[in-house]
Simulated assay, not measured.
Amino acid sequence: MSQYSYSQSLKIMLIPYIIVGILWFPLTVMIEQHYDSILISQFLVIQITTAFLFLIGLYYNNTSIYDIYWKVAPMFFVTYWSRGSGNIILPFLVFFYCIKQNYTYFRFWPGLQYEDYRNVAVKQQYPNPFVFWPIIYLGFEVVPSIMIFLGHLPLYYVFTSQNPCTFCYNFSIIFTISAISIELIADYQLFPYRSKQLKGDCDVGLWRYSRHPNYFGECMYWWGQYLCQLSFGFENVWTIVGAAAIQALFSFYSIPDMESHLLKKRESYQNYKRKVVSSFVPWFRKEN
């Protein structure tokens, strides 16, 4: 059990992010005095702030200080990229996505006694702090920070391009809004089960047709960024690397790992898994 109350935990969690927000643009100005590139400056600021949050987590011996970085950093660097572009809707969607993710996280967050079960598993496997903390920093913080940069990278080229295919652009916006909506609905339907108001497996709404519809919506969001950039042409088709990397993370790590975790946690999950045959894309059930 954490030695900190919920209010103390909240301050410890949020104050570093307030500092990050205050320092983001001064750091950007300092870096751009040496590197005249918006992409380089934002990548370096992301890595500096990631290291800062890692040190805070190390000081408090809590790996989950970094947890909400995925849902905070894009609000800063996407805003910076969009300056002067006249594009309002895409930064708005990024802000809405980030705020939604943070709201969902803090609905369940009990305080600093919480650490992601995957981080706890790594700590149990590598109890030596000189091994454990470098793994956390490199594998669970540096790599994700690179992935959020690459995942949103298509938006940089959207903001610096002109004359998209109107139909394709509008489709990508609708696709992204649908992605955020699917994840929002899935999180809302899961809440009574995660908050222990209801017991057992969530088998309602979207969860009747996919075992992880929230992950499905999450991956759709990243593909939406890429589709938006494609509406301007194929010059920067290589930016698919961001959405593809995140899709691979969910397909080959997050979903299998969560499945294994839930099978160990609840005996009923095996039966739920038989009925809800799809682990990702919503699909037909198998009742018998």
Rank of each mutant, 00 (worst) to 15 (best):
F130N: 13
I19Q: 04
V143S: 00
S5M: 10
V204A: 11
F108A: 10
N170A: 12
K286G: 07
K100D: 12
E218M: 10
R194F: 06
G242Q: 11
V276A: 07
D116W: 01
S64M: 08
R118Y: 05
A245C: 13
L14T: 11
I182E: 09
S82Q: 11
D201Q: 12
Y60V: 11
G205Q: 05
G139K: 00
F280M: 05
Y69V: 00
N163P: 01
I146R: 03
G151F: 00
N119Q: 09
M1C: 06
Q229M: 15
Y221V: 11
K100R: 15
W283P: 07
F43V: 13
L44H: 04
L55E: 04
Y114R: 03
I174P: 04
R208Y: 01
I246K: 09
L150W: 06
F175Q: 06
Y114S: 02
K286H: 15
R83D: 12
L23D: 03
P144I: 08
P74W: 13
F171R: 02
H34T: 07
T28L: 15
I182W: 07
T166F: 08
D36F: 03
T239G: 06
E259Q: 06
Q229Y: 09
L227S: 01
A244W: 06
N236D: 07
E267L: 02
V45C: 14
S5T: 15
G151M: 03
T239L: 05
G224Y: 00
I56H: 06
F171V: 15
K123N: 01
I173G: 00
Y137W: 09
L39G: 00
W24I: 10
V143F: 01
S37W: 10
V241S: 10
Y215V: 03
F43T: 10
D187W: 09
W223R: 00
Y157F: 15
A244G: 08
Y137C: 01
F216S: 14
V158S: 10
I177R: 02
V277K: 14
V237E: 05
E218I: 08
G233L: 13
Y66Q: 06
V204Y: 04
I240W: 14
I146K: 01
F43I: 13
T176Q: 01
K196D: 07
L206F: 12
I246A: 09
Q225Y: 10
I146M: 12
T104N: 13
F252P: 10
F108C: 09
V120W: 03
Y209C: 08
D257P: 02
F234K: 13
F130M: 05
G224Q: 02
R83V: 14
M30W: 13
A179V: 01
A121L: 05
F167H: 08
G111V: 11
P74G: 11
W223Q: 01
Y193N: 09
S85D: 08
N102H: 12
A243D: 05
H261F: 14
